[in-house]
Design a protein around this nucleic acid. Structure first.
Length: 454
RNA sequence: GCUGGAAUCGUCUAGUGGCAAUGACAAGAGACUGUAAAUCUCUCGGCUUCGGCCUUCGUAGGUUCGAGUCCUACUUCCAGCA
């Protein structure tokens, strides 16, 4: 994997560059859409492409039972994921009569592939049952997040707010338990006991064959102590070495080079963060080093920038860094300023499904938008806004009792929010290259957080 | 016209003597950051010094310590028979 840095910010950390993978380039900073089970919920690959997404993140944990099937398809980029509940065909994109905004923009995406998707997939009405492969660059997570979400954080919201009272889930109530070998867990969907350690995670990920893999790590919660963070971080480092050793056995099995990132933990402590960054930066197996680094952890918003600075001051400049799981605009700016190259997050799509629409002037609660004939965001270049959908028409779709209408809403809203965040990363990239990052940041954050539309 | 049955918070609904009254939907507010999330939490008769107070189950009477619940009449609706 090749990573070329095109421009570095004056702070010496933030940068714009290009990552070259077997399935294409990623111009950074970049946001990767989360398609946990091989596709982004409610979106076809063409939909995803129309948002400007350059890469997709899936999850080895969720796909563990599909891994050999995916390997037979020659990897995630060639695999057609089954779309539970179906996808809405691209034909459905255009706003219906009377629902267009005043601008009356035309449909610019979707039509080109409508035929092939409809012909090849089992379609029920306008609902497509299989997602066409996402042929572009991909990344898989190791299942490390599930160590936390099914373990110490079971049933909790992952929050970045200090005010929230943070506690861990009691041991007896957890579905996942950490040991030196790996993590024993109960599958929350079917109750089956299972086990994933570094070796299992690498075997799964190498069968799935994403361009970038994550080492198996343990994400601690904000409630964990300094002492526990040392323990978990040191275990994560041992797991990283085992991950690397296992990964290099299989990384070329599908006929192209798969890459591995180590994940940095260490909570909010400078000594731990710097130490683990140094250790992972120099770690190698048979002379092979990690291809890049994942910046992991549960962060308080106010700590994020400092923590990233500690990590990235220690990490080698020439290898890419992925900031795991963050995408709110302020966090993206902090990440980009502090040297994160790629991002992923469920927030744009999840919040879209839950009625939160991103706009230049802050997010909007769709519930309040009854009969509002305005576009979702003025001057937005997303497929949804370009097709002329309005806040009122989306609200009606979302609140309608009709399942197909709702699915259509999920699709349109997801594309909008994804495009919003992806466009933001494109603008940040341009501002780094054009040397106006600080001005752009100030202006954008002022517009976004300064005058919230209530 | 006769005979049954039914009327409850925007809607549907629970309730057969202790009730400001169940559940669902709708509505309103909030949350969500490597997806157990098309999810979750809260509000949802009025007022409140948060202890309560007031007004409510078609209308009007009655029985009872006490009535959404029992009785009588009326109104409206539904079903069956003419």
């Amino acid at each position: 994997m090749e990573f070329r840095i095109e421009k570095t910010l004056s702070n010496g950390l933030g940068r714009a560059g290009v990552i070259k993978t077997a399935h294409g380039e990623i111009k950074t900073p970049a946001f990767m859409a989360v398609g946990t089970t091989g596709f982004v919920r409610f979106l076809s690959s063409e939909d995803l492409r129309s948002t400007g997404a350059q890469a997709m993140l899936s999850n080895g944990y969720h796909l563990r039972r599909k891994a050999s099937e995916i390997a037979r398809a020659k990897g995630l980029a060639e695999w057609r994921a089954g779309a539970k509940g179906g996808l809405i065909s691209p034909k459905e994109l255009s706003a219906t009569n009377g629902e267009r905004s005043k601008r009356g923009a035309t449909v610019t995406t979707g039509d080109a592939v409508a035929g092939s998707v409809e012909e090849e997939a089992h379609s029920v009405g306008s609902v497509v049952q299989f997602a066409e492969p996402w042929h572009g660059p991909t990344l898989t997570d190791s299942g490390g997040f599930q160590v936390m979400s099914l373990g110490s954080g079971l049933g909790k919201v992952v929050s970045m707010e200090k005010e929230r009272h943070i506690t861990n889930t009691a041991h007896k109530d957890r579905l996942a338990h950490v040991g030196e070998k790996g993590v024993s867990f109960i599958d929350p969907f079917d109750g089956t006991p299972d086990f994933i350690g570094p070796e299992e995670s690498m075997q799964i990920q190498c069968q799935i064959g994403a361009d970038i893999h994550m080492a198996f790590d343990e994400l601690t919660s904000l409630a964990d102590s300094y002492e526990y963070n040392i323990e978990a971080m040191e275990r994560t480092e041992r797991w990283a070495k085992r991950s690397l050793a296992e990964h290099i056995k299989y990384r070329d099995d599908l006929g192209y080079r798969q890459n591995l990132y180590a994940v940095l933990q260490g909570g909010r402590w400078e000594d731990l963060r710097r130490r683990t960054a140094q250790n992972l930066a120099k770690m190698s197996v048979d002379g092979v080093e990690f291809d890049g680094f994942g910046l992991g952890g549960a962060f308080l918003k106010e700590d994020l920038g400092e923590i990233l600075r500690w990590c990235n001051e220690e990490l080698p400049v020439g290898r890419p860094r992925h900031l795991l799981g963050l995408s709110h605009p302020d966090d993206i700016f902090v990440g980009a300023a502090m040297g994160a190259d790629t991002f992923d997050c469920v927030a744009p799509t999840r919040e879209a499904r839950h009625g939160k629409i991103y706009t230049r002037h802050g997010s909007i609660n769709l519930r309040k938008m009854r009969d509002v004939g305005e576009p979702l965001d003025h001057d937005c270049d997303c497929p949804t806004c370009q097709a002329g959908w309005t806040l009122g028409s989306l609200r009606a779709m979302w609140r309608s009792g009709d399942e197909e209408q709702k699915r259509k809403y999920y699709r349109l809203a997801s594309m909008h929010n994804l495009r919003f965040i992806i466009r933001l990363t494109e603008q940040i990239r341009a501002s780094i290259i054009g040397e106006y990052f600080d001005e752009f940041r100030r202006e954008f954050l002022h517009d976004y957080y300064g005058q919230l539309i209530k």
